[in-house]
């Protein structure tokens, strides 16, 4: 994607977002009392103002994109393994989602150990043994610090509980 295309897409995205906010999000998800004496004191005033500015910036982005020259220069470095890269992105998203599910059930320490290992192998570490050692030690050290020094109630889960 070149600069011109990016600027145009961002502009269109900003305009669509402004329209969505004005016509859907704010009317449905912002509550305001009916007896507000002045519009500028209403809880709706600020979100509407910001939405209007977002629309204006979107129009500005579209206008500047039209003035930009068309070039072959891409903004982001190309990647050799596009398919596997996309799979890795899905992988990290799954790690995050599964971690969120496991934190209260398995406990933060064990979940973090699994997340560390999964991430290290996802980024194709060349040091698998070091990764395994770090995956065990780092969450344990952090648990020791946060639970016993900082007094944070780190979730322990339903299975193996740490002292």
């Amino acid at each position: 994607m070149n600069e011109k295309t990016l600027q145009m897409r961002l502009g269109l995205g900003a305009c669509l977002m402004a329209l969505f906010l004005v016509f859907v999000a704010i009317p449905n998800w912002v509550a305001a009392p009916s007896n507000v004496p002045n519009i500028i004191l209403s809880p709706l005033f600020w979100p509407y103002t910001l939405s209007a500015f977002t629309g204006l910036v979107g129009l500005g982005l579209i206008a500047t994109s039209m003035r930009l020259p068309v070039t072959d220069e891409t903004l982001n470095d190309p990647i050799d393994d596009l398919g596997p890269a996309r799979m890795r992105m899905i992988g990290i998203a799954v790690i995050m989602l599964v971690s969120m599910f496991l934190f209260p059930r398995l406990g933060m320490v064990w979940t973090c150990m699994l997340a560390f290992l999964a991430t290290a192998f996802l980024v194709k570490t060349r040091h698998p043994v070091t990764a395994v050692i770090c995956a065990i030690l780092i969450p344990l050290i952090l648990y020791a610090f946060f639970a016993h020094v900082a007094g944070v109630a780190v979730p322990q889960g339903n299975f193996v509980r740490l002292p």
């Binding site: 973090c112 997340a115 560390f116 290290a120 060349r126 070091t130 990764a131 969450p139 946060f146």
Partner: peptide, 20 residues
């Protein structure tokens, strides 16, 4: 320090830090 060890460590640090 291999960056591919550092990055998962950063992720775990972030998790603990934000939870705390």
């Amino acid at each position: 320090v291999p960056k591919r060890i550092l990055v998962p460590a950063v992720l775990i640090l972030c998790v603990y830090g934000v939870f705390a």
